[in-house]
Amino acid sequence: MPKFLTSINAISWYFLFPVIFIHFFVVAFPSILSLLLCLTDWNGFGRINYVGLENFQELFRDRVFKKAVKHNIIWTVMFLTIPVIVALTIAYLLTGIKRGQLFYRLVYFFPYILASIVNCLIWRYIFHPRHGLGGWFENQGIDFLAKSPFAMKETALYAVAWVDMWHFWGFLVIIYLTGMYQVDDSLYEAADIEGATKFQKFRYITLPMIRPIFVLSLIIIIIWSVPTFDYVYILTMGGPAYSSEVVANHLYSQAFQRMNVGYASTIGVMMFFYVGIIVGFFAILRRMGWEV
């Protein structure tokens, strides 16, 4: 065998080949196809016609898509605030106690390891108009709470987000705890001598010290909110009347119910560009020496 094929450099490529091959085959190649198909009007079979940017023009006129984007933005904002605030508070309280800490951590984290379908079934039942809380409220004579929040236009999106947040926030607690335990104890001791309150210690020591992990958690939330799908699809299918439709759902129905391959690819490409911009933005921030 020639020497360049047995050199350590070549061998290290052989070891990498399987992972590159399988990942390229499943992720990269179809992604490239998607980038090409978004310029066509293909419907899964028959002729493929090049239509230029027509799909994008149509997308910007698509009222359901606009609605879905709005819902995704609401979704992201909700996840950036509610679970973050709750998790920060709880993690901070947890650092202050000694007994039972492990128990709390396990309980908070537990829903995170449950399947989306299981979490959805739990809450669908609890919110059930006749059998769950709804029936209980009806018995108490509080009729307006008796309907399932998943079935009402005004509340569907928030109810779905509630279930997803219920499953997610414990994950953030663990992330923040990891950061908080890396903070040097002497800082708190010094603050104690100065007579700082608990809130002051949180505001002026904990928060600045965990900033890298905190910013990271926000990036994760922004990126993970984009393809959010399971909870909406299982609980409401985007309904009623598109009131909880999110972008991933819109794409899924265009792709697998209507077989609008070109159009669905266009939505996918938009999602990809959006995530790319976010990731790029933070990469640039980091390059500029912002410790994020």
């Binding site: 992604s31 998607s34 792709a255 697998f256 391959v261 669905a264 996918g268 990809f272």
Partner: peptide, 11 residues
């Protein structure tokens, strides 16, 4: 960081 929705249909 590629969302699954980008490639699920061609796949």
């Amino acid at each position: 960081s590629i969302p699954a929705q980008l490639f699920i249909l061609p796949l």
